[in-house]
Design a protein around this nucleic acid. Sequence first.
DNA 1: CAGTGGTCTAGACCACTGG
DNA 2: CAGTGGTCTAGACCACTGC
Lengths: 264, 264
Amino acid sequence: MPPPSNDPELPVEAPGSGALAASGPAFSPLYQQIKGLILQSLQAREWKPGSAIPSEMDLAARYRVSQGTVRKAIDELAADNLVVRRQGKGTFVATHAEQHVQYRFLKLTPDNGDRASEGPAERRIVDCRRQRAGADVARALGLRAGDAVLQVRRVLAFVGVPTILEDLWLPAGPFKGLTAERLAEYHGTMYALFEVEFGVRMVRAEERIRAVAADAAQGALLGVTAGTPLLSVERIAHTYNDVPMELRRGLYRTDTHHYRNELS
Amino acid sequence: MPPPSNDPELPVEAPGSGALAASGPAFSPLYQQIKGLILQSLQAREWKPGSAIPSEMDLAARYRVSQGTVRKAIDELAADNLVVRRQGKGTFVATHAEQHVQYRFLKLTPDNGDRASEGPAERRIVDCRRQRAGADVARALGLRAGDAVLQVRRVLAFVGVPTILEDLWLPAGPFKGLTAERLAEYHGTMYALFEVEFGVRMVRAEERIRAVAADAAQGALLGVTAGTPLLSVERIAHTYNDVPMELRRGLYRTDTHHYRNELS
DNA sequence: CAGTGGTCTAGACCACTGG
DNA sequence: CAGTGGTCTAGACCACTGC
């Protein structure tokens, strides 16, 4: 088979033939384009979280490229945690539910032992209300001030000790129908619920961490005295295409737990 | 060319031919073995930090494998930040010096703008002494309690504001001759100095983060009142082969800066 | 222009999974 | 056993760098 040869179903081809305008089109390799196409199918929920996507051979046939090219595209999707490869079985759409790694975004770990040894966290929904976004929340979520948002407040406890106090803000549109009851009923992480009930899959997040002093109300909920140093973890979680879909502010007690991070 | 065909210079071949004992040898692909060989050369400083390693073709010839196999090995080394690829130029041994990313392991960022906009940190060595390792330090560094270690204390300031107070412990052996003077003289990050002066290249680190209250002495050095919440960042940095070579405990002011982390 | 890493293909074979 | 992802090869061509 001769090189790519502009087949149907293939998007534009960008390589450097022909005179280029200033700040040229910036060559994009084939496998990147394939990655983009697969990404579109993921966003469109053509394949559901947890289920298998077509085999590399099938995708190669669909896009009229070699298996190796599809492979490289999937390699990157797997590196981005959008997809999970399982030898002998297939490639699966990543999911927060049923994933070995529960609490994928929670980096708090008990000082001795791992999180698994603690058993599941005990969760208590303190509050869940609909309100209008302030300037900060609106900016973080890409909304306009005054747009409707849902605010959730909850406490997580480990082996009976309240350890995390979290406030979440979600855009009201995509999460229409979320109530304290549904949050309380659901068994599994919040992000799993978002996937299953609202079709919103969180893909990436960034956190800003600070040390703060607990105020009286926060102290009461966490069982510490006002003034106790706490870790403030402000997180913005994104769906596909880097669209922000959640603002979360956690206050972590760090007397028996710590935030663990790997650098390389 | 027929498959691998057991040439000289190649290490053992593990594939699944022949009867295997219980808990079998666990098949190791060729490119992993090549990666291991290149890693050995890196550790042996066969190629110095910042200089180029042989081209993929040369390495393929040296190890009697195809270019693609070398490529995959180097891909992983690059993903581990041990090596940097530069198209058209070659593949280079990664280095803390002369690296675009100054302060590769420092995740503290000003609340507005990036670290570059602040200009270089002002560094002040408070102390540098030789002492015996306590139990904690010994355990972290893989030494025995009582072994000689160097302790360094310093303060980093940004635009005139003292922001970080750090205590470091280093095994005395590999860092023989390190003094406050040499630390003060050196222009560049500490990890660059370790590379250049002592041949110790830090490759990976893990951090445990907590919120603590400043005591009087710490507050004085950082210009805050006792009791101010600070981020406590305990880091263990490793050289090749996951050998721990530094224990560092930083106290970060987070009134104008934050610890930034990406999750995926 | 030669040399480097980067992309793409095609085909063979291996390891793992499940029926 | 067939089907999947994983490895390895060989060769062609492309994009980037520097002389």
